[in-house]
Lab assay of single mutants.
Amino acid sequence: KEMRNAYWEIALLPNLNNQQKRAFIRSLYDDPSQSANLLAEAKKLNDAQA
């Protein structure tokens, strides 16, 4: 469930391009235990690109 939530949050971040989203989501599938960390990194990048 945590992975699914992280997937959708990443997919809906407005300032990431599709390539960036795909990279984060690929990492999510590679290591679901890192969901919270990956989401935090994606949000950080999203904010930096705002």
Rank of each mutant, 00 (worst) to 15 (best):
W8T: 06
S35R: 06
Y7Q: 10
F24P: 00
A42M: 01
A50Q: 10
K43T: 02
L38F: 04
E2D: 14
R26Q: 11
A50L: 11
N46V: 01
L13A: 04
A23G: 13
A40S: 11
A40E: 11
N46K: 01
A42F: 02
I10H: 00
N5V: 09
Q34R: 13
Y29G: 03
A36H: 13
D30W: 15
S27Q: 09
S27I: 08
A23N: 10
A42C: 03
L45N: 02
A40I: 14
N5P: 03
Q19N: 12
R22W: 11
R4T: 14
A42Y: 02
Q20L: 03
N5W: 13
I25N: 02
K44G: 07
E9G: 06
E2K: 05
D47V: 14
Y7N: 02
A48Q: 13
L13G: 00
R22M: 09
Y29P: 01
Q20T: 06
M3A: 04
I10P: 00
D47N: 12
S33W: 04
A50V: 14
N15A: 14
K21R: 10
A50K: 06
A42G: 02
I25M: 12
D30H: 12
D31I: 06
K44V: 14
A23Y: 11
A6V: 05
D47W: 14
A11C: 09
Q34I: 10
L39K: 05
R26F: 05
S35I: 11
N17Y: 07
F24E: 00
N5T: 14
L13R: 01
S33Y: 08
L45Q: 10
A11K: 14
L38N: 03
Y7T: 05
L38H: 04
Q19T: 12
L39C: 03
K44C: 05
N5H: 11
N15K: 06
E2Q: 05
W8F: 12
S27F: 09
D31E: 09
S33N: 09
N15F: 12
E41G: 03
Q34Y: 06
E41I: 12
E41A: 12
A6L: 09
F24H: 01
L12Q: 15
K1Q: 12
L45T: 07
E2H: 07
A11R: 15
R4M: 15
A42V: 02
W8C: 05
N17Q: 05
N18Y: 08
L12Y: 14
R4H: 15
L45Y: 04
N46H: 02
Q34C: 06
K44E: 08
R22A: 05
R22G: 11
W8R: 11
E41P: 00
I25F: 15
Q19V: 12
A6S: 07
N46W: 01
R26L: 11
R22N: 12
A40P: 02
K44H: 09
E9T: 06
E9W: 07
A48K: 13
N46D: 06
Q20D: 03
A11Q: 12
D31V: 06
A23D: 15
S33R: 08
A6G: 05
L39A: 08
E41C: 05
A11I: 15
D30G: 09
S35F: 11
Q34F: 08
Y7H: 07
A36R: 13
A23F: 08
I10D: 00
K1S: 15
A23Q: 12
A6P: 05
L28F: 03
P32Y: 08
N37M: 15
A11W: 15
P14Y: 04
N18E: 12
K1P: 12
L38A: 05
K21A: 02
Q49W: 07
L12R: 15
S33L: 09
I25C: 06
A36Q: 14
E41Y: 11
E41N: 09
E9Y: 14
N5Y: 15
L13S: 05
L13V: 00
A50G: 14
L16Q: 00
E2Y: 03
A40Q: 15
K44L: 05
Q34H: 11
E2S: 05
K43Q: 10
Q20G: 01
M3G: 07
E41S: 08
I25D: 01
S35V: 09
L28S: 01
S33H: 09
R26K: 10
L38I: 14
E2P: 05
D47L: 14
A48I: 15
R22K: 11
R22I: 10
Q34T: 08
K21P: 00
A11Y: 14
K1R: 04
M3W: 15
A11T: 15
R26G: 04
Q19F: 11
A36W: 09
L39S: 04
A42R: 00
E2G: 03
N37L: 13
N5I: 09
L16H: 00
A36L: 11
L16K: 00
N15G: 03
L45E: 03
A48L: 13
I10C: 02
A42S: 06
R22H: 09
R4L: 14
F24G: 00
L13Y: 05
I10A: 01
N37W: 13
R22F: 09
A48W: 14
N15P: 00
A40R: 13
E9C: 05
L45C: 03
L13K: 02
A40N: 10
Q20R: 02
A50D: 09
S27V: 08
D31W: 08
I25V: 06
Y29K: 07
L28E: 00
Q49V: 11
Q49I: 14
K1N: 15
A40Y: 10
